[in-house]
Design a protein around this nucleic acid. Sequence first.
DNA 1: CTGCATCCGCCTCGATACTG
DNA 2: CAGTATCGAGGCGGATGCAG
Lengths: 229, 229
Amino acid sequence: MIVKSKQPNVKGTVPRRSYRQFCSLARALDILGERWTLLVVRNLLLGPQRYKDLLDGLPGIGTNLLARRLKDLEQQGIVRRRQLPPPAGSTVYELAELGRGLEPAVIALSRWGLWTLQHPRPRNLFRPAWGMLAMRILFRPEAARGVRETYQWQIDEEVFHIRVDDGAAEVQQGPAPHPDLVFTCDSETFRGLAARTLSPEDALASGSLKFEGDVAALAHFREVFQPPD
Amino acid sequence: MIVKSKQPNVKGTVPRRSYRQFCSLARALDILGERWTLLVVRNLLLGPQRYKDLLDGLPGIGTNLLARRLKDLEQQGIVRRRQLPPPAGSTVYELAELGRGLEPAVIALSRWGLWTLQHPRPRNLFRPAWGMLAMRILFRPEAARGVRETYQWQIDEEVFHIRVDDGAAEVQQGPAPHPDLVFTCDSETFRGLAARTLSPEDALASGSLKFEGDVAALAHFREVFQPPD
DNA sequence: CTGCATCCGCCTCGATACTG
DNA sequence: CAGTATCGAGGCGGATGCAG
């Protein structure tokens, strides 16, 4: 005789599959362990996104699956659905407190995965937003003591900024009010920088990477975002 | 026309499902994101395990799935298969360098998941080994400066130890040579301690938790393994 | 056009049985 | 003890439908 461990599957109240272990890792994976879930969180770490933005930023996800993940994440209190004020009026998804608390875990997993970028797969896509995650990985809090600067990155048509404030760093999409430094490059160059297969020196020397701003700020940036070698 | 992105699926050389993104998080999840994989790593973080130990420590996993996960993890260089020297002679699985590098990510995810233990699910199982993971989470490096002690935990029939060495902590299964402190309790008590629904004071007062050793070491332990509140 | 819902084929998962 | 073989159920991926 087969005993169903799940409820009769009332539509909308599906009791998610669970490891049924009293363990914080297992419980975390009950919530985040399904396919695409952590990648949705990754994309939302840069700021609120519309449904369409998420679809574009998650190439390969099915539109149905994205909808389901967002619904689950919202129900779990990780993601919040919000209407932008007029005249925009569009709905955006953003991380709730619980979701923002995932940053350390996302960073830790990404840092572990850094080695894989040395062995690139043939047909892998790249988005500048994912490269900004690498910036978050390379950030060294102890080297940022006393530093209070904002760095802006313009990669092709996309803009991001990093706000460093004395040991803390925040990476967000969009321009910053008064950046101390503005970098400009194309997506290909940024890809190399993020994967550390292209050194900043070479990129600056070849002109594929340009910067505008104080030279002292550039020195700070290079000091603060250094690989742990 | 439908283009198959995968190879003809030759047995043994299956090209694993991939997000196909040039992103360290996506690549990490290509390797670790499938069901049970990180839980296998969690169990191996406490030391080498036989196949049977892993099956017991991962209730709910199918034996076929465990075999497949171990094979994949070994091929990825995360897990190593090793024969114990005679007279034991049994095969054990242990983490390779790459696998040991996963500890920060596992800790980070577990720490995020700690809040879930306040809302226990009805039929969730518990193993002392999972509680030792909580110990690793509660460890505060800055409070362990200058501390160089070993704490042993005897939970029902299982034994673990924690070696603290000036800002670093290592949690392993089995007894320690010369522990500075030995705790003894049953699984139920330990579960409450790990979930922080039972305070050490109450446990010691009620006698469900006993300790043997130096009182100064007990003070150190309490200082070093404190919640971040 | 955005923001989903529905449908369908395939592949992974989970449970059990079985073998060296 | 240490796995392999088998098979049904369900999650996933891709295409398409549809309402605001």
